[in-house]
């Protein structure tokens, strides 16, 4: 069985699994990291959104073999450590605005939001309505409005 190594939330990990198994299942079923959720396995719903080297991506759409030993994968569980705190400012804002309802989409929403703020900044502007309209994450509980409020507030904090 092939071995695959990468950095997961700051720790080098190795998983013994076939090359073409998507990273989402390596995280959830092999390594027991369940923050990233399954909502489609098609790169559509974004519930699995995590970071690779600081960028948002869908682990359901990446074979484990495409991940290098030096790649840093961050799931919601590892997000606070990226800022050296108990909670990332985006998570704090999520609490302030009481965003979550069932919560199933929220790990993915938060990971997407962090990347979206950075992306807007890299493009030279602060995040706004046009950027929000580009966020593809489904929230079937319909928390979209509070998500917008929380991202706007959090963007001032990091």
């Amino acid at each position: 069985m092939p071995q695959h190594s990468f950095i997961l939330n700051g720790t080098q990990v190795t998983a013994e699994v076939d090359d073409d198994v998507r990273l989402l299942w390596v995280l959830r079923d092999v390594l027991g990291v369940t923050g990233p959720k399954y909502g489609c396995g098609l790169g559509v719903c974004q519930a699995c959104t995590s970071h690779i080297n600081g960028k948002a991506f869908n682990p359901c759409s990446v074979p484990v073999s495409a991940v290098q030993a030096t790649d840093e994968i961050t799931t919601i569980e590892g997000l606070p450590a990226t800022v050296g705190k108990d909670l990332h400012p985006m998570q704090e804002a999520w609490l302030t605005y009481d965003v979550a309802q069932c919560g199933y989409c929220q790990p993915g929403q938060i990971m997407a939001a962090v990347a979206k703020v950075r992306q807007a900044r890299a493009a030279g502007h602060e995040i706004g309505d046009a950027d929000f309209d580009e966020i593809r994450n489904i929230c079937r509980c319909g928390t979209y409005h509070r998500i917008r409020e929380a991202i706007t507030a959090a963007a001032k904090e990091f």
Partner: peptide
């Protein structure tokens, strides 16, 4: 089947 091109859509 799940896609395999997820890295190309990272942002």
């Amino acid at each position: 089947q799940s896609p395999t091109d997820g890295l190309s859509r990272a942002y």
